[in-house]
Every structure is written in C-alpha cells, then in structure tokens.
Design a protein around this nucleic acid. Sequence first.
RNA 1: GCCGGGUUGGCGGAAUCGGUAGACGCGGCGCUCUCAAAAAGCGUUGCCCACAAGGCGUGCGGGUUCGAGUCCCGCACCCGGCACCA
Length: 841
Amino acid sequence: MTEQIQDETHQASDGPSYDAHALQEKWQPVWEELDQFRAGEREVRPGQPAPKRYALTMFPYPSGDLHMGHAEVMALHDVIARYWWHRGYDVLNPMGWDSFGLPAENAAIRNDEHPATYTYGNIDTQYQSFKKYGVSFDWSRRLHTSDPEYYRWTQWLFLKFREHGLAYRKNSPVNWCPNDQTVLANEQVLADGTCERCGAVVTKKELTQWYFKITDYAQRLLDGLDGLERHWPERVIHSQRNWIGRSEGAHVDFDLHLASGETRRVTVFTTRPDTLYGATFMVVAADAALAGEVVAPERAEALASYLEEVRKASDIDRLATDRPKTGVDLGITATNPVTGEQIPVWASDYVLADYGTGAIMAVPAHDQRDLDFAKAMGLPVRRVIDVPGADNPEETYVATTADGAYVNSPALEGVSGKAEGIATIIAKLEADGRGTGTVNFRLRDWLLSRQRFWGAPIPVIHCEKCGEVAVPEDQLPVRLPDNVRGADLKPKGVSPLAAVADWVNVDCPSCGGPAQRDSDTMDTFVDSSWYFLRYCSPDYTDGPFDVAAVREWGPVDQYVGGLEHAVLHLLYSRFFTYVLHDLGMLDFEEPFTRLLGQGVVINQGKKMSKSLGNGVSLGEQIDRYGVDAVRLTLVFASPPEDNIDWADVSPSGSVRFLQRAWRLSGDVTSEPGVSFAEGDVALRRITHKTVHEVEQLMEAYRFNVVVARTMELVNATRKAVDGGCGPADPAVREAVEAVAILLSLVAPYTAEEMWERLGHEPSVARAGWPSVDPALLVEDAVTAVVQIAGKVKARLEVPPSISEAELETLALADPAVVRAIDGREVRKVVVRVPKLVNIVV
RNA sequence: GCCGGGUUGGCGGAAUCGGUAGACGCGGCGCUCUCAAAAAGCGUUGCCCACAAGGCGUGCGGGUUCGAGUCCCGCACCCGGCACCA
C-alpha cells in the first residue's frame, strides 16, 4: 500500500512541479523571520489601533508528540484566526502547555527521573511540530502551567479564593482512584463510576481535603448559560444544566423523638411538598452522621452492620438503579408536621448523604423509590393524589406522579394542579414555621486537593499553634522540590511531597514555630481555569494578569476545543471568571463568548487506540501528503463538530486539489496590479460570489463548505483559462489571487507559494481580504423551474427582472409543460419571480 | 427512566426564510496520453426502466401546503447528558 504514496506530492510531467515538502522547507524560515502574527501591534492607520479579537484553542497536555486530534483542532481554529487577520483585526492567538499532570509523573517513575524532564522534552517536540504545522500563533506569549512564574499565580489565586471564603477544607468521604492513588473531583468520575483518566473503578475514602465553593455560584453559572445559547454547542449547555441540576422544592422540618426522650428537629428536602400528607415514614442516609446520632440504642448494632454492608458494596453495585431496596429501622419516630402522626424513621443507602439534607420524607404512593422501599419493608402507603385513570399504587406497585385531585389532604382541599398545590403547602409551612420554599442543586463543591507531586503545591502551612496559615504573598511561589527522582514519587496514598522532609518542614510564617507545608497539590484543572487570562500579559509580575490587558482582549471571542471537558474545564473556567469578576479583576462574567466543539478523529469507525492497532500517526500523514493536504483533509471532511473517520477521507485527493490550485498560479500571464474591472464578467461574477458566500459561511463555521466553494472557484478558473477568456484576462488574475487568499485559511504553504508565483511579496496571510463588488453579485440570467404539482417539468433561462405575467406565459408555453399538462384544466398557477412557477391541474 | 441532538446516493457530506434534493469531494465506470503502467487530463455516475418517455426517491406512518429533506403529530433506530439527586 505504500507504492502509490511516494510520488503523490510530486508531479513528474514537464514544467515546475508542486512539491509540498519543498514548500514547507522554503516558507517556514521566511515566516519565522516575518513573525507576522504578533498581537497588539496592528493599526488601521498610525496611532489608531485595529479592532481586537481573541482567538483561543485549548492548549495541549505535553504527552508525546502532537496527534491527529491536535491537528484537527488547530486546523479548524487556524481557519478562524487567519480569517480575522485577513479581515483587518488585531488577533490574539496564543498557545501554551497545560504541563502539570499525571502522565509526566508516571513517566518519571518509570524512568526514575524528575517529571520536568518528560514534560519539557515533550513540550519541545510539540513546539517543533506546531511550527511545521504552520498555525498562526503568537509564540511570544507562550506559557507553561508548570513554570514557577505561572504557578506562582495559580497559588496566589487559591489564596485569594480562600481569603474570600471560596476555598475551604473539610473532612468527608471523597472519590478515590485506587490506581492513581489520589482523590478525584465529582466531575472526574465518569457516569459508570470509573476514573476519567485511567478507567479504574473509583472508591470512597474519608479524607480532609480542600474544596472550592463552586456551589455558591450554582445559580449564576446556570443563569449565565442562557446568554450562551446559540453561541455554545447545545450539548455543552445541556450538560452543564444537567450537572448543576437545579431543583425547586421545599425544606420541611420533622421532629424526631429520640430514645433518650429528646426531640431533634431534622429538615428534609422535597420537590413535592404537596404530597406531605402522604409521608408515612422518613429515611435518612445510612452513611450520614445523623443516622448514628439518632438511632435507638437497641438498633445501633443493626445500623452498624448495615453500614458495613453498604460500604463493602462497590460503586458499580451502587449504580444499579434497579437493585432491591435495603435499609434498617432506626427504632424511633418522627412527627409529620401536617398530620401530627408518628411515623417510623429508617436508614437506607438509597438516600444520599451529600444531596439535599441527607434525609427525606418518604411518600410511597407518589414516588417510585419510596414505594419500592415501603413494599420491601412493609411500611404503610397512603394515596394523597387521586390520578384519573390510575389505580391505587399500593396494589399496582406503580407510584403515581401525575396531577390529580388532592385527597386525604385537608390543607389542599379543592386545590387543582401540582404548581398550586406546592405553592399552597409552602405558604402553610412558612406560616406555621415548619418549612420554607427552597432551591437545591446537584452540583457539589470542587475538590481540588490531589495526592500527587506534579502540580501546583497548595500554598498553606499547617502550624500546631496557629492552625492553617496562608503562605505570605511575598513567599510565592511555593516551588516544587527539584531534588526528587522517579522512585520518590511512587504513589503511596499520601502526597510524595509529604516525604520530602526539607520541603515539608518549615517555620510557621505567623509564630515562627515548627510547622508543615500542605503536601497536596492542586487539581490541574485549576491551572487551566485561568490560563486564557494570563495570555493577555504573559510576563506580568504584579499579579496573575494585567487587568488593563485583559480589559483590552477579553473575553475570548472564539474558543475551539474538544467537548470532553463539557462539565470540567468549561465549567471551572466559568466559575473562575465569575469569581474574578466579583473580586473586581474582570469586567466580564463569561470567559468564552463563542465556543466551537470539534469532533474527534477516528479510524474505521472506532476511536484510535493502541490495542485496536488502528492509530494514525500525524507525523506519517504529514510525511506522505504534506501539512497542507492533511489540514485541508481535516477541514473539508465534515462540519467541524462532527467526527472524522480517517478511513472515509482522502488526503491524496487533497493533494490533487492543491496541485490544481497551485498550477493556476503559474498560468496567470497578466501583471500584478492589473485592473480587474476590465476582466471577463462571467468569471468575475463567480469570483465575487464565491468570496461573498465564504464570508457568510465563515460566520456559521461551515468550513467544509468554504473549501467546497474554493474548489468550485478553482474549477471555474481552470475552465476560463483553458476554454474561456484565456490566461491573460485580468479576471483570471483576480480569481487566482482570490483562490490564494481563500486557500491561505487552510493550506498556508500552498497559498504562500501561489502568492509569490503571482508576483507578490510574502505574506499572503496579511494580504487582506478580496473586496466584493455588489454589482457583480447580481445575476444576468436565472434558471426558473416550472413545476406541475410540485414536480419539476421544465427549466427556463430568464432575465432576473422578468414579470410574473411574462414568466407565467413562458412557462405555460413550454413544450414539456404542455405535454405534462396533457390537456388537463389548469386550476391555479403560483409564480415566484424569477425562479419558480408551480402549476396546479 | 428523564432530558438533549440526530437519521439525505456505494462513502464523507451540500441544500437550514418551505421553492431545481444530492453542490464539492471520495470511490466506481468509460475514454485520452503511453510500448505499458503510474501520474495527469476529459466524460459519466441517486434508484427503476435497453434508450427515450416516464416513474420512484431525504429512517417509517400520517398531516398541513400550490409546493415539505425543511413545518406539525405518531413511531423506529443511532449518538450524547443525567441517573436511587427525593
């Protein structure tokens, strides 16, 4: 299968040949010299800065070299950035590395070296590849999150958050990855209960950890999504809404009567307070502290053994929603606040300790889970809503949740509908001081501690006397020790930093006494939650970013990246931006105005993977076809948000097209600067129409169609050169120059070469955009279709200005139409000038 | 289970204010050049029908409309999010 490849980028026939690799060699150093994508220097005229645009693409993690996935994002992203340059914007298009993280640490352990070795080695490899790939990045703003100059400010931001009560430490059961030997945020545990990074089954562990109080922002993060509608992919907005999980309901107070004789008031959360009269028992989360505190002494042992059983069950078991309900009677009762009845209190694992209040009122008649539990435990079921057409849940084992007439509910007599019922009962509870209307969220606080080495150390010192002490600002960054080797980093359940004695043991900044550094590092998602701000002033030393610079560039106008981060990076960054806005450091709340989520590159219907042996190497593809052909293939293959199956596309077809476009640039015989106005009108119309259409396609991200239109322009120009107006016509030069500029969005090397062959100085990237003459967008003839009952029977070439009557007459006279009417009566004629006539017979 | 998004030739995909379905490309077929092949170029290519004429066609079934890939109702299947979240 290699035999066809060798010559694919070479043309053996006479004349100069198109050699993609030679073009890369030729132009890379020239571009390096030109350094033409520096942000912040463009002016419309002296003294007047050009309008600014911020184009951002997700920075890579430096594992190995760039792969097909990177190639796709960069290709798509670069289409936008280069288009903006052409349209006259001053474009900020930075690149850097998300360079803290586990793979470097694991590699360090394997090779017994420092994680920095792997990290910076790969960064260098990727940097070279980026250069070759020809993306219009402003390399002067390059950053790495693992540089002390960067993580100093990650630490600074952590302390700011802490200062404002948004970072705190608590002890609770956390997600624990037994493979990576570290805790994970909820967002990093996949729906099937496995670790987002390594796929191991996540377990629970009780630990004291740092959290960001993202829940304080739940409502605002939710509300902000409304404004992103139509600018962000539906999928991401939807995922975030689901993840935040707002539900409206009520807090209702129940008095628990403990064995000791005390009364303890416990609040439950419910979305259906209107079913309160049907609450025939209460359930508390078995693993919540409350269960142990209220259990009757004679039931304590039963609870303890149940709890043990629950803890043994793996997360996989817990995830099976249809498994039978289990639980234990706590031996006490509670008072239903509206009926005054004494109802039993149970503990079960179907109630979650960390959602709502960790305790629920059970209404078996109208909640399936409660009904299942009631049936399993023989607890009473009382119907309080009579749903028309539905049988008694107690007999059918099917809880009813639909609207109906309230029964057995004195306070809801005559009330109709769920909404009114809920409002009525909340009003009553509030009046009685037994509850309030409330809102609850599924979102949990962001657990940010990690028991790993290669991350930003948490800048806190633990002093026996003073407790938690923030590292003073002038002592930042808290640097990672560089005297560790791979062997020191082996996971042992606590951070490897804890074992580095001369690093951990410090004097307390407050009292000067002996103290220890916090040995955990931060989740790497903290690093990436603010990197886009740092790019605005990458060398700033008085803060994480220069507020004025961010005011100039922010927010990001266009973000391009994968959507596997829908509830991770894309949610965390929004949270950071809201907080920094509230701290007065930003004048916007949403970080990314427009988001494009590109699909992934797969092969033969499956994700590329080593085990499947279906991996496609970017480097190999570039060696075979050249950078431009690979980029073109990726952009042309499908709409940007769809997946690309490499088996379905044809990089060699891309090479063919690039050759044909390139060849045109050698056919032009007119001089640069020739007056296009004197050119062939037919070709000029096509050129102007194409450019105009591309402008609209660009706005709508339809890059694959942009390529198709460029191909059509090449085809039309070829025809004009060979069989139409001929190569000397100014319209041919106009068309080929337009092709070069359009092509520069996707295939910069070929476009650059064409530009030079057309007699221009480099670079085509800064050549500006062809101006569109509206007069040339007007057609001189259009094809009108004649339909009978909606089926096309004839086509007519008519002037665009034709009148309805004329068009109708022409249509009815057409022989094919006459034949199709076949003497039948014409009942109605619909005319839409100048394109359509529909005849009803 | 709840909530989103989708289904167009052999393939990737065009056509999103209801108005020529299949742009552009891949693949296929035929031809030119060549001793031959490759490369390149030209032509052709939704399906049925030998051609023409004609008919059928955008997952399936209905509907609205002069006219539906596009709007409405029902269904099937695929992808994604949440999932014992009270």
